[in-house]
């Protein structure tokens, strides 16, 4: 389904989606973030600071509550994500491509009920990047594209005073038909314009990971390279790169005790982070990834070697957040290129 939506009708479209909670990019406290919006949605944002991964994989997920009265058996009460549907507007193609990658992680081998319960109620309404929204975009070099529809339910393309809106999935079609009368049929000129805009978008120069298909083998050969420690020399071991990443999915599970007598608390899953020194710390005190080099290697190899080995595609979608936001200039594009170059 391909339609034209006049820009002044976008708010009416959102109003028509009354059974959905709508999120859109909002500039607050100096950063763009997906936040609940009612009424006005403006899609003139660069990419948001955090990816929309938290909608299906929130930073904190309560699994269950527990309670035990002394002498009695413990009582567990499962906490189930609510059934409210969320439609998130303005998702960039790189973040769209993050969605199927997260789906793989949380469905392959093990079905993660919490992830799926949330995931099935999220619709991703994408916005094609007519030009790269950030200086560190590199989607083209990791198999993506500024006009990719991968992972999206709807793709919108900005054509000046109107959007070219394309349903990618059935859910997307549903979102559009909910406000069918707002949409017009695209003319031949519209079709031509959108093709042109997409062609220009793809032609826009970007930064690039060179020859991404060859990267897994080169990384594998570089596991013991001293280059890792050199490249990670400035790494401070914070969680920015992974927490902002659209595909980093590691987590930790803890019991948070709220009362000791009677014993009462919750079991929670929180995002964890391979760059934290205690991520791989054993209770013996031994740490198999004992320095920043080993930890940087883990993150890079996960994106560019292990994930391709397991699922046949790089996990990185080229959004550039970890590059732009690293406080000390660690740049995954430069890191991959250097390691590959060094591997010969």
């Amino acid at each position: 389904m391909e339609k034209i939506l006049n820009k002044k009708h976008i708010d009416d479209w959102i109003a028509a989606l009354d059974s959905w909670d709508i999120l859109g990019p909002v500039l607050e406290d100096g950063i763009w973030a997906y936040q609940p919006v009612s009424g006005a949605v403006r899609l003139d944002h660069p990419n948001t600071r955090q990816s929309p991964k938290g909608l299906a994989f929130p930073q904190r997920e309560i699994f269950f509550k527990f309670e035990q009265i002394k002498g009695e058996a413990p009582r567990l009460t499962q906490v189930v994500p609510d059934e409210q549907r969320h439609a998130v507007f303005g998702v960039r193609p790189c973040d769209g491509r993050g969605v199927p990658r997260m789906d793989l992680v949380f469905t392959d081998h093990v079905e993660d009920n919490y992830y799926q319960a949330r995931r099935k109620n999220v619709a991703y309404v994408g916005l094609a990047c007519n030009k790269p929204p950030g200086p560190n975009c590199f989607c083209l070099s990791v198999g993506g594209s500024p006009v990719s529809t991968d992972g999206l339910d709807v793709q919108m393309t900005d054509l000046g005073d109107r959007y070219f809106v394309k349903a990618v999935t059935e859910t997307g079609k549903g979102l559009m038909t909910a406000a069918g009368k707002l949409f017009a049929e695209p003319s031949a000129a519209d079709q031509k314009q959108v093709e042109q805009v997409h062609a220009d978008a793809v032609a826009h120069p970007q930064r690039a990971v060179r020859n991404v298909e060859a990267v897994p083998a080169k990384l594998k050969a570089s596991f013991k390279s001293p280059l890792w420690q050199e490249l990670a020399r400035a790494c401070i071991g914070c969680g920015i790169c992974t927490f902002l990443c659209p595909t980093c999915h590691c987590f930790d599970i803890n019991d948070e005790v709220q009362s000791k007598a009677p014993l009462k608390g919750i079991r929670v899953r929180t995002w964890d982070n391979c760059q934290f020194p205690d991520f791989t710390m054993h209770s013996s005190g031994h740490n198999p990834r004992e320095n920043t080099g080993a930890r940087l290697r883990q993150r890079v190899a996960h994106k560019f070697q292990y994930f391709p080995e397991n699922f046949g595609m790089p996990q990185c979608t080229g959004c550039g957040r970890c590059v732009s936001e690293c406080p000390v200039g660690i740049d995954i594009v430069a890191v991959v290129n250097k390691v590959v170059e060094n591997a010969g």
Binding site: P74, D252, N254, D255, E256, V257, K260, L263, G265, V268
Partner: peptide
């Protein structure tokens, strides 16, 4: 460890939880 009981866990001083 495998020896750690639920009670041990509950009685630990956890100044700050992981939840953000």
């Amino acid at each position: 460890t495998t020896e750690t009981t639920a009670e041990d866990k509950a009685n630990r001083v956890r100044w700050i939880e992981r939840s953000a």
